[in-house]
Amino acid sequence: MVEPTSSPTGYRLLLPSDWVQVPLRQGEPEEAVRSIVTSAFTRIPADVPRDKLTPLRLELERRLRAAVADARKAKALEMYLPIRLSGETNLGASIIVSEALLPTRTDSNGTTTHVSDPAETALQLVSGDRAADMDVSSGEVDGALAVRRERVAPPAADRGAELASRRVDYFVSVPGDPGRWFVAAFSTIGAGDPRDDLADALVEWFDALMTTFRWSWA
């Protein structure tokens, strides 16, 4: 395979129409949140009393704003969220796109430097310290070296996460720029249990989605 002489300027994912992108560095995240909340309530019958809907709507908006704030604090690039309900089940899922911090190595003189070789970075991600129930594997995404990491994260009530969640992260080396890694982080609570059938199905869906990932050049 011919190595690229320049790095890509973006990426593409073939997301279903019921998912929306929330821009975190450019654009208007607040507008996207309002659109998601509005879409989520469009299927509710008109005869449902407003006094019952308003608290639910406000709570959904609060949770989305908190999720966006956390993602922006982590310097994420974009967030993807489902904009309406699936049947009677709220998907309770998200995808956050960001750039990874490079791991470091310390030489015999005690000097710490960033690891710039993608293969060495992937090796550290695969073989480094991790929880016993974390599944890590390596492969390729659109011709680039990639590492897939899956785990179950415990509840974090202080951050508004009352339930445990299933997490799948894809770390993809950026062609032509060994110092950068693209990260797509998927999270779902399933139907309330991160290991239930819905969570399994959504993880399979996310893995299938990542097969549609393509780099784009200007």
Score class of each variant (00 low, 15 high):
residue 5 T to K: 13
residue 11 Y to Q: 03
residue 12 R to Q: 13
residue 12 R to I: 07
residue 15 L to S: 03
residue 38 T to M: 04
residue 40 A to I: 00
residue 49 P to N: 08
residue 56 L to H: 07
residue 59 E to R: 14
residue 60 L to V: 06
residue 60 L to W: 01
residue 71 A to K: 05
residue 75 K to E: 15
residue 76 A to C: 10
residue 78 E to N: 14
residue 79 M to L: 13
residue 86 S to M: 10
residue 89 T to L: 15
residue 90 N to G: 11
residue 91 L to Y: 01
residue 91 L to F: 00
residue 92 G to S: 12
residue 92 G to L: 09
residue 95 I to C: 04
residue 96 I to E: 03
residue 101 L to M: 14
residue 103 P to V: 06
residue 103 P to E: 06
residue 110 G to Y: 04
residue 110 G to F: 01
residue 112 T to V: 13
residue 113 T to P: 02
residue 129 D to L: 10
residue 130 R to G: 14
residue 131 A to C: 08
residue 135 D to S: 14
residue 135 D to K: 15
residue 137 S to N: 10
residue 139 G to M: 05
residue 143 G to F: 04
residue 146 A to L: 04
residue 147 V to S: 13
residue 149 R to K: 14
residue 160 G to R: 06
residue 160 G to C: 05
residue 161 A to W: 09
residue 165 S to C: 05
residue 166 R to A: 12
residue 167 R to V: 15
residue 170 Y to I: 02
residue 171 F to C: 06
residue 174 V to G: 10
residue 177 D to M: 12
residue 177 D to G: 04
residue 177 D to P: 00
residue 189 I to F: 06
residue 195 R to I: 08
residue 204 E to D: 14
residue 206 F to A: 05
residue 207 D to N: 13
residue 210 M to Y: 03
residue 214 R to G: 07
residue 216 S to I: 11
residue 218 A to H: 10
